[in-house]
């Protein structure tokens, strides 16, 4: 069986859920092997979890450089892991999470391996044919790499993890980073995730738009989200107006979500916003303007003031849970 390499996504000593999803996709094609890139000791903390998630092998690429530079350590480590796994004849694919870094790593690696790349796959079959959801889900496209070892980034939450425990045999690999082509990371600022679910993978998303009117009033959106156990999202207009941080933007240039339920509060439903949420199972919209385009795709639309409707809904949801 050929090997399929999976870049393990981890932070603060814990695996990100997407890693289990990638290992599940990898098992369809061949023998899943994880590649851990991190500071010395990073792999020891993750090995048990990786084996449980399906890794037969764990390529351990540890160096103090791993956290000080962006992207190029992972590129060099994956290249070394491809070699260690037997090269082009033995490696059927390299899978990475479709994050900003994941796509950069994929791009650079593809050039080094002289391979084609596919970005943002939502599914992968046993012959390494990837499924893509294009233009906000208006098209379903399948695509295949025809040159070299396929390098594929996979959207978080798209593949359901089905863990089958693997042997988790650890294999050390060495890598070096060329400072002339390296970007140094001097500080990282991330918001603590808090208790809310991850936006991309959430079952329910409550989003606010420009109609919310201010950063303070976004608490109306948050309260409904918390009553529903939902993630909070925002339109680009809301983000650009400073009402909510950018990482919560939903849409063509933000996160693509596909939850069971999407609630849009004070969002007009511009085509670029719809591109990031129109594959949601059920859509509820509240907007003052009866002609807002969001109503064209809403399963349940309310023409009204979000400051009346959302708090009442929050109340109802809380009391039903009661």
């Amino acid at each position: 069986m050929p090997t399929v390499l999976v870049l393990a996504e981890h932070a603060d000593g814990a695996l990100r859920p997407v890693t289990g999803e990638l290992l599940t996709a990898a098992r369809r094609v061949g023998t899943p092997a994880a590649v851990v890139v991190g500071a010395p000791g990073a792999a020891a903390a993750l090995a048990g979890e990786l084996a449980a998630a399906g890794a037969e092998k764990i390529f351990v690429a540890e160096s103090p450089d791993a956290d000080s530079y962006a992207v190029t350590p992972q590129v060099a480590a994956l290249q070394a892991a491809v070699e260690a796994a037997g090269g082009a004849g033995e490696v059927a694919a390299v899978l990475l999470p479709n994050t900003v870094d994941g796509r950069d790593i994929a791009g650079r690696l593809a050039i080094r391996l002289d391979s084609g790349v596919i970005a943002d796959a939502v599914d992968l079959d046993e012959s390494v044919v990837a499924t893509l959801s294009v233009f906000g889900g208006s098209y379903v496209v399948t695509s295949q790499v025809t040159q070299g070892i396929p390098v594929i980034t996979v959207r978080a939450g798209a593949v359901t993890a089905e863990p089958v425990a693997g042997a988790g045999e650890q294999v050390p690999v060495q890598f070096t980073v060329d400072p002339a082509t390296a970007t140094t990371v001097t500080a990282v600022h991330t918001e603590p995730a808090g208790d809310r679910p991850d936006l991309a993978a959430a079952q329910t998303v409550v989003s606010g738009g420009r109609g919310v009117g201010s950063a303070d009033k976004f608490s109306v959106v948050e309260q409904l989200a918390d009553a529903l156990g939902a993630a909070v999202g925002a339109s680009r207009a809301a983000v650009d107006s400073g009402y909510y941080p950018h990482q919560f933007q939903v849409g063509q240039t933000g996160t693509t979500v596909s939850p069971q339920l999407y609630i849009a509060l004070g969002i007009s439903g511009a085509i670029q916003h719809r591109a990031g949420m129109q594959t949601s199972k059920s859509i509820v919209a509240v907007n003052k303007d009866p002609d807002a385009p969001i109503f064209e795709i809403a399963d349940f639309g309310v023409v009204g003031d979000l400051f009346d409707v959302a708090p009442q809904l929050t109340q109802e949801v809380s009391s039903r849970k009661g």
Binding site: A70, D101, V185, V188, H189, A193, P245
Partner: peptide, 8 residues
């Protein structure tokens, strides 16, 4: 970056 920003 995912979840925020980095200085580089």
């Amino acid at each position: 970056i995912d979840g925020g920003y980095a200085e580089v």
